[in-house]
Design a protein around this nucleic acid. Structure first.
Length: 981
RNA sequence: GGGCGAUUAGCUCAGUGGUAGAGCACUGCCUUCACACGGCAGGGGUCGCAAGUUCGAACCUUGCAUCGCCCA
């Protein structure tokens, strides 16, 4: 006997383990079946499951379970990404909390060891959380963007290196010195996408820059209304800035070429306070006459716009900040003329000091308070500085072209379609992608810096050495598989003595000639160098690998093929690339979707996925983004614990309408938990009534109308759910299932069959038990993708031992029926439902006591209706609480009548009710019919409508009038019979 | 400033040209032999505003208003 309720806490873990143990999540391997694959958007290895993940993975799991049941060979590729900054941050914080030595104190190798150790131990907790949700990923193929440390030659590592090297060879990756978004906290460059532009309360400081050489000009003076009333003589020019400290690096002041106020000043100079630098006033369109004073200071080394202006004016940028956003010291400071008391100051202290100095000089004209857009690091939350550095860039503009074309040509389709626009918009305006990061946790950039500024971008260090030696025309041998290079001792001495300063000075100390080339001398040099035991150190001076690592998204961009074994030619790649669908949120279109498109097309020659389904964001119930600072974060695992994974999943599914955000509330989850209970109790009812698991049903042999009807309804539900899932209308699929299970199966079918199950007709009873059991089992299949746990549990519990014989529900075939709906049965059951509903409504409205049984007469109903009434007498009496059902020629005395279909139905309740209320009720309905009939008649009286509207619509309206008029007449008669009471 | 989207019942949302819908909440009745995490019945909307197209507009067009998101 089933308990009264499903216990998710007990069942979910048990069922999940059983599925996993039996390998249910792996591809079937059936090569004759259609392949279907999805790659998981890899969560951060540091991540914890949030609502976005819960939605994202629920939808993927629905698709994957659905397609698996449809017999496809399904791979849901699992994995996590290494999340460079985030992970490094986590481990650094741990070190600090434990009072251990810092990352820099412990050194790179030790730190990276530490991160790996952390990853092995506690990284990827999110995998366990995804399992709680029921995600049926193939965990045996769990991938990681950094590969497997125990296997240094793993394909994930090789893939990244190969892509970098090949793009470099094609000129699609290059090194460049330009302004980057610099994160002073992590001391790394970050990409545009990792910068959050936030509106904050800020200031514009209006600074007066003294004009050099005694120059003055007439500046217009305005009154309160903005009218120019005269001019004043100024020996300064005013510039407004939100970052006063950058004035230390100014190289000029720009005004608009058409700005008459300053026309005479172009070509003159200002003398910068503090640094005492003389910089020119230039004309440039960038200056906006409407904004501030119309004159703008130019700091090319610390502002993206100023950089361009400076370039046009031929200014050399002056760097005034170091990597930690302190004012520079040393040579840079000398070049910029920075006074000693500014050197080494934090940028915000420097700002304060600059402002104070201007104030003291009486050169601070005004402080304006206003909202300004300020860039913040999305991980560090510190203000980002534009900073000039050498970085590696991907030529995204070139790579974007085929990626744009692929969508235009329909090779990849966005669902909903309008996300295409976002994609195009981004792709059309794409900027060079800065892929290097000054971090330690990540894929080391496969580039080696050699002598005289040479750079070798190679798959291995051996290849880099080979390239160098080849360039220098020195002999060597290289192992074809390991790529390791063997260099003769004398040749190594030749190279080291020329390119390693340390080797050179060692030789000089030993009074040997570093520039020797005679074989005997080289042997001697070699002996000296080797005996020092510092060969490795010397070699590293000659060829030094780039210290930097790649942006995490660089490796994520390869995800759809790297996870399948690329660059090796694997069966998985052959079978499962390109993937069917990518499911993700819109905020990742730029970061990830676009980049996968580029890389997939470049290296696989084919788009990585056919469909991209963009789902909603999950917001709180007020429509606010969930965030820790707002304190409105809902934890999916808490909801799973409280209501079960099925409830959360079904809530997500029901709310996942295309193009809509999801406002999640606890209440919604609760109501879907109740839905699971409802289903559970339907099964409990079946169990009590010995409705077993017949397996198959021959529709043609089913005789009872109610059974024929419910099979037709099941068929319709299946058709709708199937189509909806195929079209990514998850909410429609879930809605159809909800409606069928609750409003058809439970509300009506199970009620209607009670008399049959308790009756004496054994044939009908057996048929009903079979159909009921069958429909329930089929329902479990249909609901399984959304609610895997409760359905799987019922599958087993409804027929003991079934799993051993037939396997898990999750591996059953998706239903597809071939049932011709029986219109006669449908009409009949609909009539029963209508009659019951009408009687209930009347009883309620007129206040007939719930318990009292009343007589019902069918007035002049005709043989068909009488027949129906007879057939369903038991159920009618039971649900409508009728004493008996009789056929009569007229409305009996003391009866209140109404109309069901075309039949007048009379209830013998006049003695129990308020007759006035009964009249009132009828008047109300007759009044409504009057109104409806009149407006429809008016419509039909309209010449234009009749001639122009489609004939079937006109006909529909005519039929409506006939129906309504007939009904109205009968209601009027009923009303009349109440007159006499 | 550019782009995208939203505006329908108290709340959350379906509904893309032909009689305005669901869930939740609310009201009343019911501890009826699957389920009170339940059953039955009911109240509640001039579909943001205005103009236009059309025989007919929640739906198409234009404008406006308000809100949200993305990008600069």
């Amino acid at each position: 006997m089933l308990d009264q309720r499903f216990d998710p806490a007990e069942a979910e873990t048990r069922l999940y383990k059983a599925w996993e143990a039996r390998g249910c999540f792996k591809p079937s391997g059936d090569t004759s079946a259609q392949a279907y694959s999805i790659v998981i958007p890899p969560p951060n290895v540091t991540g914890v499951l949030h609502m976005g993940h819960a939605l994202n993975n629920t939808l993927q799991d629905v698709l994957v379970r659905f397609e698996r049941m449809r017999g496809k060979n399904v791979l849901w590729q699992a994995g996590t990404d290494h999340a460079g900054i985030a992970t490094q941050m986590v481990v650094e914080r741990q070190l600090a909390e434990a009072g251990n030595e810092s990352r820099r104190e412990m050194g790179r190798d030790a730190f990276v060891d530490r991160v790996w150790a952390w990853k092995e131990e506690s990284g990827g907790a999110i995998v366990g959380q995804l399992k709680r949700l029921g995600a049926s990923c193939d965990w045996s193929r769990l991938a990681f963007t950094m590969g497997d440390r125990a296997e240094p030659d793993n394909n994930m590592m090789r893939a990244v290196t190969k892509v970098f090297v090949e793009l470099y060879k094609k000129g699609l990756i290059y090194r460049d010195k330009r302004l980057v978004n610099w994160d002073p906290h992590f001391q790394t460059a970050i990409s545009d996408l990792e910068v959050d532009q936030r509106e904050v309360n800020g200031h514009y400081w209006h600074l007066r820059y003294p004009l050099a050489d005694g120059v003055t000009y007439e500046h217009p003076v305005k009154d309160e209304d903005g009218n120019v009333t005269g001019t004043e003589t100024r020996n300064y020019i005013v510039v407004a800035t939100s970052r006063p400290e950058t004035m230390l690096g100014d190289t000029g002041v720009a005004v608009h070429p058409d700005d008459e106020r300053y026309a005479g000043l172009v070509g003159k100079f200002v003398e910068l306070p503090i640094v005492g630098r003389r910089v020119p006033i230039i004309a440039d369109d960038y200056a906006n006459p409407e904004k501030g004073s119309g004159a703008v200071k130019i700091t090319p080394a610390h502002d993206f716009n100023d950089f361009e202006v400076g370039k046009r004016a031929g200014h050399t940028p002056l760097n005034i900040l170091n990597a930690t956003a302190h004012i520079v010291d040393g040579a840079d400071a000398d070049a910029a003329g920075i006074p000693a008391d500014y050197r080494g100051l934090d940028r915000f202290d420097a700002r304060k000091k600059v402002v104070e100095t201007f104030e003291a000089l009486e050169m601070l004209q005004e402080i304006e308070n206003l909202k300004i857009e300020q860039p913040f690091g999305d991980r560090s939350n510190v203000v980002i500085e534009p900073w000039m550095t050498d970085q590696w860039y991907v030529d995204a503009k070139t790579m974007a072209q085929p990626a744009i074309a692929a969508v235009k040509e329909g090779k990849t389709r966005f669902v909903p379609e309008n996300w295409e626009k976002t994609y195009y918009n981004w792709m059309d305006n794409i900027q060079p992608w800065c892929v290097s990061r000054q971090l330690w946790w990540g894929h080391r950039i496969p580039a080696w810096f050699g002598p005289n500024g040479s750079i070798f971008v190679c798959n291995t260090e051996g290849d880099a050495w080979a390239s160098l030696l080849r360039e220098e025309e020195r002999p060597f041998t290289q192992d074809p598989s390991s790529r390791e290079v063997t260099i003769p001792h004398s040749e190594l001495a030749w190279v080291l003595s020329r390119f390693s300063p340390s080797a050179r000075s060692l030789l000089e100390e030993n009074e040997s000639d570093p520039d020797a080339s005679d074989p005997t001398d080289l042997m001697l040099n070699s002996a000296i160098l080797r005996s020092s035991g510092r060969i490795e150190e010397f070699r590293k001076e000659v060829l030094k690998q780039d210290e930097d690592v790649l942006d995490t998204w660089f490796s994520s961009a390869l995800w759809p093929f790297s996870t399948m074994g690329w660059p090796d030619k694997t069966p998985e790649l052959e079978t499962f690339y390109p993937t069917a669908t990518l499911i993700t949120a819109f905020d990742i279109i730029f970061f990830w979707v676009a980049r996968m498109m580029m890389m997939g097309i470049e290296f696989m020659g084919e788009v990585p996925f056919k469909d991209v389904y963009i789902h909603a964001l999950v917001l709180d119930e007020k429509g606010q983004k969930m965030s820790k600072s707002k304190g409105n974060v809902m934890d999916p695992l808490e909801l799973v614990n409280e209501y079960g994974a099925d409830a959360l999943r079904f809530t997500m599914g029901r709310m996942a309408g295309q193009g809509r955000n999801i406002r999640l509330s606890k209440q919604a989850v609760e109501s879907n938990r109740n839905f699971a209970t409802k289903l559970w109790n339907a099964a409990r009812f079946a169990e009590m009534n010995e409705c077993g698991a017949p397996g198959e049903i021959d529709f043609a042999k089913v005789t009872s109308p109610v059974n024929r009807w419910v099979l037709g309804e099941l068929d319709a539900c299946e058709a709708e759910a199937t189509k909806a899932i195929e079209e990514y209308r998850f909410n429609d699929a879930a809605g159809a299932l909800y409606k069928f299970i609750w409003n058809v199966l439970c509300d009506w079918y199970l009620e209607l069959i009670k008399p049959l199950l308790m009756g004496m007709d054994d044939t009908a009873k057996q048929e009903t038990r079979d159909v009921c059991g069958y429909v329930l089992d089929e329902t479990l299949k249909l609901l399984h993708p959304f609610m895997p746990f409760v359905t799987e549990e019922l599958w087993e519990r409804r027929a003991a031992g079934r799993v051993d014989e037939q396997g898990f529900l999750m591996l059953q075939s998706w239903p597809q029926y071939d049932i011709a709906r029986d219109a006669g049965a449908d009409d009949e059951i609909q009539w029963v439902i209508d009659l019951i509903t009408e009687v209930r409504s009347l009883r309620n409205d007129l206040g007939v006591p719930a318990g009292s049984k009343i007589p019902l007469s069918l007035v002049n109903a005709g043989p068909v209706i009488e027949d129906r009434a007879y057939r369903h007498e038991d159920i009618l009496k039971r649900i409508a609480r009728l004493e008996d059902i009789v056929v009569s020629e007229a409305v009996p005395d003391g009866a209140v009548s109404t109309v069901v279909g075309e039949t007048v139905v009379a209830l013998g309740i006049a003695d129990q009710i308020d007759v006035a209320e009964a009249r009132n009720r009828l008047d109300k309905e007759i009044g409504q019919l009057d109104k409806d009939i009149m407006s429809t008649e008016k419509k039909l009286g309209n010449e234009a409508f009749v001639s122009k509207a489609p004939p079937e619509i006109v006909e529909e309206n005519r039929e409506r009038i006939v129906d309504w008029t007939g009904r109205r007449e009968k209601l009027k008669a009923a009303r009349k019979s109440l007159e006499d009471l």
